[in-house]
Amino acid sequence: MNKELQIIMIISSLLFLCYIILMLRNKKIELKFTLSWLLTGICFLLFAIFPDLLRLLSNLLHIVEPVNTLFLFIIFLMVLIIFTLTIALSRNARRVKTLTQEIGIIKLELDKLSAKTTSGQNKQAEN
C-alpha cells in the first residue's frame, strides 16, 4: 500500500468515525444500527495505520496485491450491513402495516361510538 492511499485512508476513516460519534451524541442514529459501522471504521483505521496487518492477511489468502484484500474486506462488510438493513426494513414495514390496520379499525370504532353518543344526545334533547 502506498503512502498516499494510507494517508487518505487514515483521514477518511477518522472523519467517518468522528461523524458517527457526533450523530450518536445528538441521538440522530441508534447505537444498535451503528455498531457495525463503528467496527468498519475502526478496522479501516487499523489497516491504514498498520499496513503490515493487511499484507499478512493477503499472504494468508494468497492475494498478491494487499489493496485487493482491502477491497474484498470492504465488499464483504458492505454486503453484511446492507442485508442487515433489508431485515430491519422488512420488520419495520410489517410493523407499519399492523399499526395502520389497527388505527383504521380504531377510527371506525371511534366513529361508531361518536355516532351513538350524538344520537343519544339528540334523543335527550328531544325529551
Binding site: 407499519v96 402495516k97 388505527i103 383504521g104 379499525i105 377510527k107 371506525l108
Partner: peptide, 14 residues
C-alpha cells in the same frame, strides 16, 4: 357505510 380508513396506503393485501 362502515369504513376502515387506513391512514397509509397498504396495497390490496394489507
Amino acid at each position: 357505510a362502515h369504513v376502515i380508513d387506513l391512514p397509509v396506503n397498504l396495497g390490496i393485501g394489507g
